[in-house]
């Protein structure tokens, strides 16, 4: 029985490793291709590893086609950093009210938030565009979309806050703390892991977003990274050497974040699944 089990585990393991290898092919192939010169990339059968290793695609792609990746990275950060921080603040405040204060209309309001989670974002693109028309070609619509808090983030914060013992609030009340101060100096410090998870989650969403920039941003100097990459493909549709290098650029911040905060990435999804 034990031996049979061990064999099954070994087989599972071998299979999983093979599947994991297949799973990262698109990703690895992108990196390998980005390191090959143009003549090699368009050869058939393809070479597995670059025969002629080159970084020229990267230097060429950084500034090609009137697009400037340095500028676009700046723009993406100018959008993502304030959007994420404000989103976390406003969402956690709302969640605090839902989890910790009794007031009339609470359950109804909370239901309104929860139902908004399921709403397809594509649906409301046109009215959102009309509403934000005065701010076309600025970062305002991109930040405004998340800075007031996302229903989903409110929901997850609230679920976590509910697990923090209420006695802490009562003790603080006796000490004369205001509600706001309880939120900031008791609840938030106790919620650090969730805050980290949701920061990663919101940042990734804003940084990866392509639709909002597509609709709201017009001039090249205001392009975010994702919009820039799409426009890059519009110019160099068949230059896969440059395209792969440019794509790798856009992955770097997310990959770095993923490696640094892998735990929080995965944790976020677990929360969404089990408490949804």
């Amino acid at each position: 029985m034990v031996r049979k089990n061990r064999l099954a585990t070994a087989l599972t393991y071998a299979f999983l490793c093979a599947a994991a290898l297949v799973d990262i092919i698109p990703f690895v192939w992108m990196i390998l291709s980005s390191l090959k010169p143009q003549s090699e990339i368009f050869s058939f059968p393809p070479s597995l590893l670059p025969r002629q290793f080159t970084l020229r695609n990267y230097t060429a792609a950084w500034n090609a086609g009137g697009l400037n990746f340095a500028r676009m990275f700046m723009n993406s950060m100018i959008v993502a950093v304030p959007a994420t921080s404000l989103c976390i603040l406003s969402s956690s405040l709302a969640a605090f009210a839902f989890a910790r204060i009794r007031f009339s209309g609470r359950d109804f309001l909370f239901m309104c938030f929860v139902s908004a989670i399921m709403m397809p974002t594509m649906m409301v693109m046109i009215p959102t565009f009309l509403l934000m028309r005065p701010f076309i070609d600025t970062f305002v619509p991109l930040i405004a979309r998340v800075m007031f808090g996302l229903p989903f983030v409110v929901f997850l914060f609230r679920q976590f806050f509910m697990t923090i013992p209420r006695e802490l609030d009562d003790a603080a009340l006796v000490d004369g703390y205001s509600k706001l101060r309880i939120w900031w100096s008791i609840i938030m410090p106790l919620s650090k892991p969730v805050v980290a998870t949701l920061v990663v989650f919101v940042f990734q969403q804003v940084y990866n977003d392509f639709l909002y920039p597509l609709i709201f941003i017009n001039s090249k100097s205001n392009f975010t990274v994702q919009l820039g990459l799409a426009s890059f493909r519009g110019i160099y549709a068949t230059r896969y050497d440059l395209l792969m290098a440019a794509s790798v650029f856009t992955l770097v911040p997310i990959l770095a974040l993923f490696v640094a905060a892998q735990r929080y990435f995965v944790e976020g999804v677990v929360m969404t699944g089990l408490k949804g």
Partner: peptide
């Protein structure tokens, strides 16, 4: 307390109205 709750909710209710329900 209720006033505090509504104050806490202002930003996200603005968001809920202008980003979700009004456009819908």
């Amino acid at each position: 307390e209720a006033t505090a709750a509504y104050l806490c909710l202002i930003p996200s209710i603005i968001g809920l109205i202008f980003i979700t329900y009004l456009p819908l």
